[in-house]
Amino acid sequence: MIGMISYLAFFSTMAAIFAIAVLGLNLHWGYTGLFNGGVVAFFGAGAYGTMILGGRADATVLGGFGLPFLVALAGGVVLAGMLAWIVGLLTVRLRHDYLAISTFGVAIAFESLTRNAEWLTGGARGLRGFPRPFEAAVGNNFVYGLLFLAFVLLVLVLVYIGLERLVRSPFGRALRAIREDETAARSLGKNPTRLRLTSFVIGSMIMGVAGGLYVSFYAFVSPQDLAPILTFQIWAMLIVGGAGNNRGAILGAFLIWAAWTASGFLLARHAPVAMQIYTGSIQYILIGSVIVGMLLWRPQGLLPERLETSAGPDRTRPAGTNTTATTNKGVT
């Protein structure tokens, strides 16, 4: 019984951490129409940043400053935000492709850094040893798991409320305006480049929060945790839940994480021994198929975006059908 609850707590903690990252991505893709091809880099910046600042001292690496948990987490989030600011500054004014390519590039560059800069990131073996917040006060592992889950859920709720307020504020309306019709928004005095950049940085910082929570949960991080598949998982969560709908984003995170763990479990249990080293590939194909299938058949996701505009509350909009780019009169 306790095993069951403790597994459920573990599962929910992971799902909630991913849900936070999905909320960040939703601000990018769902509300602003920005394509982030390197979610893992911003998640990773939060993770490594938090670990380096808050981790236990280790003679072989530069980090391990052992700063208080919240300070370390804030540092990780700022790092993710700075990374986004640099990339965004160079690309958000250009055609949408450039952001997609650059963010994909950031993820690759980030991976090279984590694998090679041993003095900073511990290289392939990663960084371990993070004083888990409030652990000393609790002692009991089972209770601690539940407490940590409660803490992650609290952060999730805070991020959710914050984002809901943000997208309903004039700032959020301006974001949707530039997503739908950039020329019109510009003529109303909106500055699309600055709005996009702000949204890109905020969304990436939210991904950084998720990364920071991830390392404090595992007390360990290595390049293995930040494989490119993480980006795909978070995308799949958003597209399944419904881009432009924060509740959908959270629903998608739980659904996809459940499907991922269940498929991993089933494959480990029932796949022939010879196939065991290929279970990852099968799971990757499933994730890819979910993404392509949703885009083909239900691009609005399970919970579509609600547009509370003059068009009435029932109108929905399939994700990514925005026609922002004026230069895109390609073949249709």
């Binding site: 893709w29 129409g33 392509v292 885009l295």
Partner: peptide, 11 residues
């Protein structure tokens, strides 16, 4: 739109 194409190409 084109963004969905980029997304699909990753998948």
């Amino acid at each position: 739109g084109p963004l969905s194409m980029v997304f699909a190409s990753f998948g």
